[in-house]
């Protein structure tokens, strides 16, 4: 119970790759960092367009409790999903990363606005905005090495879509590092 856990909540709309982003993060931590991760997803029966959430817990020890109440990092890719999130509460300590298009009213000492959607369009497709965001958060948190995330993307994304996804991830990573 005293173990140090880092918790991520990703909120968006079905079709934005919210589940894939959660999987890639947890897979990188578990398989390529040899940490422990627990990944859950929440969505309704709709095929796409409804609110969708991923929760990822990362720890150096086995994870017992699968629930996140106040995430360390909240990644918000949709105002609608964020506003409807009854399961998680953002605290003043929560690091919040939102897409630049998303305007949410919440207080946090550490809030980052990421042009994920815009950069994804420049790279070639809006659907990789999740990867831009993952790249940004990887650089921001320093919890998981960039190489591990890239390995995880390789194992989770089909070969034909790899260049697009990797370009988006790298773009997101450099977005943060260029801000330093």
């Amino acid at each position: 119970m005293t173990q140090k856990e880092t918790t991520f909540r990703i909120a968006g709309i079905g079709g934005q790759g919210i589940v894939l982003a959660g999987y890639i993060l947890g897979n990188a931590a578990t398989i390529y960092e040899k940490k422990y991760a627990l990944f859950t997803r929440q969505y309704g029966p709709e095929a796409r367009g409804a609110n969708c959430y991923s929760s990822v817990i990362v720890s150096d020890q086995p994870i017992l409790y699968p629930i996140i109440c106040s995430p360390s990092i909240y990644i918000c890719m949709s105002k609608k999903a964020f506003d409807a999130d009854n399961a998680c509460t953002v605290t003043p300590e929560t690091i919040i990363c939102t897409d630049k298009n998303v305007d949410i009213s919440v207080c946090s000492a550490r809030r980052y606005s990421v042009a994920a959607d815009l950069e994804a369009r420049h790279i070639g497709s809006r659907v990789v905005a999740n990867m831009v965001m993952l790249g940004y958060v990887t650089a921001l948190t320093g919890l998981i090495r960039k190489e591990s995330m890239i390995e995880s993307i390789h194992s989770a994304v089909e070969q034909q879509y790899l260049p697009l996804n990797l370009a988006a991830f790298n773009r997101g990573f450099s977005l943060y590092t260029s801000e330093l």
Partner: peptide
């Protein structure tokens, strides 16, 4: 449904 979708090592 929780255990089925819960992803872990």
């Amino acid at each position: 449904g929780f255990v089925g979708y819960m992803t872990e090592k």
